[in-house]
Design a protein around this nucleic acid. Structure first.
Lengths: 340, 340
DNA sequence: GTGAAAGCGCTAACAA
DNA sequence: TTGTTAGCGCTTTCAC
């Protein structure tokens, strides 16, 4: 079913049918209604390619996701999708497996398919690559920091403040030796948190001991291995992990070494993943506004898509704050109480 | 940059350039190389829409996902994507929030965007709707059963056998009263498991008591509420849950009622979600081959895409088997031993 | 208010 | 082996 057949059926020219589709106000009401009815009846849908060839607009956005098996990333994705759907856009979700080669390839794909804009979550790419895309006329928004990239519209979380708050808690609870297990990614955020950790300890006159600072893989296994080493070397009273996954692994390791969480070693994580209140003891953690990050990111993008000039304005950077979720694993008995 | 400019730069006609792109063997090596070099230099990419207008092939497939926050679905998705990527296809992932209206809308979108095929995971749609799509020439593959739909190429899991095996284990371990918490979705699979449950009890001469059979929401909360009721009414010695989420909730409820898992009530789940060996006690469960489901599903689809005649052949249905993961929660002490 | 026709960028049949 | 050209389905300018 194509426009020609509709035109013939209505006894008009293709131009008139096209007008009904795109500028109905320019068509006489009577002809318009007649044509609309035929379109309905025949379930005519304009050909996507033919339209694209003329418009170069696809009502599609691309979303780069570091790793789809991680449900925290998917929560952000859901935020993006919610906004997109409401705007009548479709979202191309791309799983890049934390690999910048795959990420580049997907960007290419998205450009080929003429998406109207791209959102990158914790991008592994370099600034110059992204700049090139944007200069091609496809707006870009960054959600979350992996590399230290400026100059784009972006949404970030104040991870440093979040980490600092948790370390301060530990100190307040009376812990004198505090370890940190920090993940290798997202790079920038992990660095920020490590920095926060050091600053708070210094502020409070606590000596910084390198044996309590350990870089690990941002996985359960990474946390397990890192904690096992750290604890075996003489355990700190508390451990802060830069992700919940790391914290889970750490808790497992502590238990395996015959010690108890939080009595022997308190633990806190970062992210408030869904299973944080299922593990035993329930994990104290820093909650991130994932869904909101997605929503704000998408809004930034649609601002750019809908107003072409904005792409040349000074980029906006939105910073969101974290929240503490105090549960049993950090050893603070008074503030516990959450069911799900 | 378009084909005309390349042609001019190379001093040939557009047809020749097009040939280099699509049938390079029909171009004299010298001309071909010359043109290829220019294409490289100018980073020329054929226009997506113009190509589509001629080919009506997009090298894109659609993937309907019930709910992206559930990482088990995303494991299937990853299987699909792995195959697609290898075939040079891009995957459109669509999150339908377990809602058949959204699902229909996305199918429309996918058709508009001319995907070459669609994979539906646990589709909520009716058979006739899907038939219509396939008759439009877009092949369809089903992964997992929600509705009872025949007549399509599909990948399913023998859930019934999986459930039966676990119930048999319980009986073998000496449990005389066994409850089941079955989720509302996926519908068909849950029904199968309930049927398996009844059959095994009958086979073993165990009376079926309706108070031990409870339909719940397929969520942690659902499991919690269902188990609370069941256990408060006089607990069974063991509970089988048709999903891990339900099992987590059940374990929480049992603990909240002051009883111990597995000593007072043994628990087993279904799915082997990532956190099953993080909860305390670690959850005994039935492992499903999610990744494989995705891979097989994708292969079925590409068979259909690549060989148009196959769409009229008798559909193939692949049935995969489950595996048991015996951990602490079921109370069988001897077979425990897993770290991650 | 409507129609004829050019053109979007590409492919492929046909001709040379 | 290469070029010319029609045509894919649609939008839009220009006439009427």
């Amino acid at each position: 079913m194509n426009i020609k057949q509709i035109a013939k059926a209505a006894g008009v020219s293709v131009a008139t049918v096209s007008r009904v589709l795109n500028h109905p106000e320019n068509v006489a009401p009577k002809t318009r209604e007649k044509i609309q009815k035929i379109i309905e009846d025949k379930e005519y849908k304009p050909n996507w390619f033919a339209q694209g060839l003329n418009f170069n607009r696809t009502k599609t956005i691309g979303l780069i996701i570091p790793y789809i098996l991680n449900s925290t990333y998917m929560e952000i994705a859901k935020g993006v999708e919610d906004v997109a759907l409401q705007k009548g856009y479709t979202t191309f979700m791309c799983n890049v497996e934390k690999n910048n080669r795959i990420e580049s390839e997907y960007i290419e794909q998205l450009l080929t398919r003429k998406v109207d804009g791209i959102i990158l979550m914790f991008s592994f790419l370099q600034e110059e690559n992204l700049k090139a895309v944007q200069e091609d006329g496809v707006p870009i928004v960054l959600i979350g920091e992996n590399k230290d990239i400026k100059g784009f519209n972006s949404v970030r979380v104040d991870c440093k403040a979040g980490a600092e708050g948790m370390i301060r808690n530990f100190i307040e609870y009376g812990h004198k030796t505090i370890g940190i297990l920090y993940g290798s990614d997202p790079e920038q955020e992990s660095r920020d948190m490590l920095e926060g950790y050091r600053e708070v300890l210094e502020e409070n006159g606590i000596a910084i001991e390198e044996k309590y600072i350990k870089a690990v893989d941002n996985t359960i296994e990474g946390g397990y291995l890192g904690a096992k080493k750290m604890v075996a070397d003489g355990p700190p009273q508390a451990i802060f992990a830069t992700s919940d996954d790391i914290a889970y692994g750490a808790m497992d390791a502590i238990k395996d070494l015959g010690m108890k969480v939080p009595d022997d070693v308190a633990v806190a994580g970062f992210g408030n993943a869904r299973m944080s209140n299922l593990v035993e003891p329930k994990l104290t953690t820093v909650e991130l506004p994932f869904h909101k990050m997605g929503i704000y990111g998408a809004r930034l993008l649609f601002d750019l898509i809908e107003d072409e000039d904005k792409i040349n304005e000074k980029p906006r950077q939105i910073t969101l704050q974290t929240k503490q979720r105090i549960r049993k694993s950090c050893g603070h008995k008074e503030r516990i109480g959450e069911m799900f």
